[in-house]
């Protein structure tokens, strides 16, 4: 039996979290290679459809990492991400996707230690959940993604 190596897509805000990920690199702090990062300008840019698309294309987990509340480069984009994530988690449940497969968190540009920690936690969490197996019809995701 092969070991399950999950694939996790991270949407990282370009001002805080993405900088935090770069800082982890500059500090040579290793973390599991399972996270693959998409840079967005703001966590509020993360359309719920991006998350669904990631799951549909085979991601086992999705992380959205933004600036801490009150520190958003665009004032309140991260709060929009917070609202969107809360609703999206309910929708994921309806599609048969455990809501723990989506994690929103705040990482400041200097918080590479936190980034390394939560990536590790997420990888462990998704490993414990096992591979995401969507139903034949994508668990309803396909119809939710008619826009693309």
């Amino acid at each position: 039996m092969t070991v399950f190596e999950p694939r996790i897509v991270g949407f990282l805000c370009g001002w805080c979290a993405y900088e935090g990920a770069d800082a982890a690199g500059r500090a040579r702090k290793t973390y599991p290679a399972h996270l693959r990062i998409v840079r967005v300008l703001c966590s509020g840019r993360v359309d719920p459809q991006f998350v669904l698309e990631a799951f549909r294309q085979g991601a086992d987990g999705v992380m959205i990492l933004g600036c801490h509340p009150g520190e958003c480069h665009y004032k309140e984009g991260n709060l929009q991400a917070l609202k969107m994530t809360a609703i999206l988690k309910k929708l994921l449940g309806q599609c048969g996707i455990q809501e723990e497969r989506l994690r929103l968190d705040w990482v400041a540009a200097g918080e590479y230690g936190k980034l390394v920690k939560i990536v590790g936690e997420m990888v462990e969490k998704v490993k414990s959940l096992g591979p995401l197996r969507l139903r034949e019809d994508g668990g309803g995701i396909n119809s939710a993604l008619t826009r693309h």
């Binding site: 967005v40 300008l41 703001c42 509020g44 840019r45 993360v46 359309d47 719920p48 459809q49 991006f50 480069h73 665009y74 984009g77 929009q80 969107m84 826009r147 693309h148």
Partner: peptide
Amino acid sequence: GCGVCAAACPSGAIKAKHFSD
């Protein structure tokens, strides 16, 4: 250019340039 509006638009009418859907 933050793209918050693009993420929230239910009609897909807003394009975030360079960070398009």
